[in-house]
Structures are given as structure tokens and as C-alpha cells.
């Protein structure tokens, strides 16, 4: 069963919401980039990341993740501030399948015939965390009351 709720799925499928992909290279350096419309969701719950720059740092990091079984993180943020972080494993790099061709054609239709698509990365989501600020704060207040500043208790509810 997918770890993605219908709300998270809807955000992943929406090309216009903010989507950030975080990867790590083989030296442990993080690399975090906005990827909005380049991240999509397949019906079987696999996340697709469409890479357009073959020599990008992200591309190097994703092959590092696939080869050495490292996680990547994707953060999505809806228009109302709702935000989720998804952690997953990189399953496959694809540049020959029918699905790749479909994305290639769609990209050209949207961005013009000179657009490039290097390959598709398939990411299997393993966990999701609600990172919406109000949700996180409520969670923190409940789980770690010692971490709150006392003066906040004086604020009228």
C-alpha cells in the first residue's frame, strides 16, 4: 500500500505547486533544488523526476543514491501553506521506455521542440512527514513541552 495520502498525491501531481528535491553526493554534500513541474506521480505510487540536464549535480547524486542505496527527500508545498516531506529510494533511471518517450513528447509540446529530457528517475516513497508549520508546532508542543518558551503560555489563546 502506498505511504502517500490522497492529499500528498494531489500535491505531487499538481505541476504548479512548489516541489523541492534534496539529494546528497558521494562526498556527503547536500544539494537542494526546486523542481516543481519536473516531479510527477505515477498511478502505482512511484514518484517520477524528469531530469533535463544530464551533467547536473542532481543527476550525479541520484545515481549515487541508486548505486549505494541512499535516501532522497522531496518537499511539496501547496498554495495554502500545507507542506509534506517525502523520503524515498531511487529505483531506476530510464531513458528508453515508452513512458520516457511520452514525457519527452509532452515536454516538447509544452516547452518547444528544442527542449531536452535526459532521463526519468523513479523514486519509491518510503515515508511522509507533515511539515506544515502549524501542524509541526502543535506536535512539538505536545511531545516536547520542555522545549517551549514560558512566555508563550501567557499569550491569549
Amino acid at each position: 500500500m502506498s505511504v502517500l495520502s490522497p492529499e500528498v498525491k494531489a500535491l505531487l501531481k499538481d505541476p504548479d505547486v512548489f516541489k523541492v528535491l534534496a539529494t546528497v553526493d558521494d562526498k556527503g554534500h547536500p544539494h537542494v533544488v526546486f523542481k516543481n513541474h519536473k516531479i510527477d506521480l505515477l498511478d502505482d505510487g512511484t514518484i517520477v523526476y524528469a531530469e533535463v540536464i544530464e551533467s547536473s549535480h542532481t543527476n550525479s547524486n541520484l545515481i549515487h543514491s541508486l548505486w549505494f542505496d541512499k535516501h532522497v527527500a522531496i518537499t511539496v508545498k501547496g498554495r495554502d501553506g500545507t507542506s509534506y516531506q517525502i523520503k524515498g529510494k531511487v529505483e531506476r533511471y530510464d531513458f528508453v521506455s515508452n513512458l520516457f518517450r511520452e514525457y519527452y513528447r509532452k515536454l516538447r509540446a509544452r516547452k518547444g521542440p528544442d527542449s531536452e529530457l535526459s532521463g526519468l528517475w523513479y523514486i519509491r516513497p518510503e515515508s511522509v512527514k507533515d511539515e506544515t508549520p502549524s501542524v509541526r508546532r502543535a506536535e512539538e508542543d505536545t511531545k516536547h513541552p520542555f522545549f517551549r518558551h514560558l512566555d508563550r503560555e501567557l499569550v491569549a489563546a
Partner: peptide, 17 residues
């Protein structure tokens, strides 16, 4: 992608950037 038979050049993917 351009050849595929050389294990050392497979590894170049780690540092193309």
C-alpha cells in the same frame, strides 16, 4: 549511454557536474 561497455566510464556519472 554512448557506449556502455566500460565500467570505468560508467562511474563518470558520479562527477559529470
Amino acid at each position: 549511454k554512448r557506449c556502455g561497455i566500460h565500467p570505468d566510464t560508467d562511474l563518470a556519472r558520479l562527477f559529470n557536474h
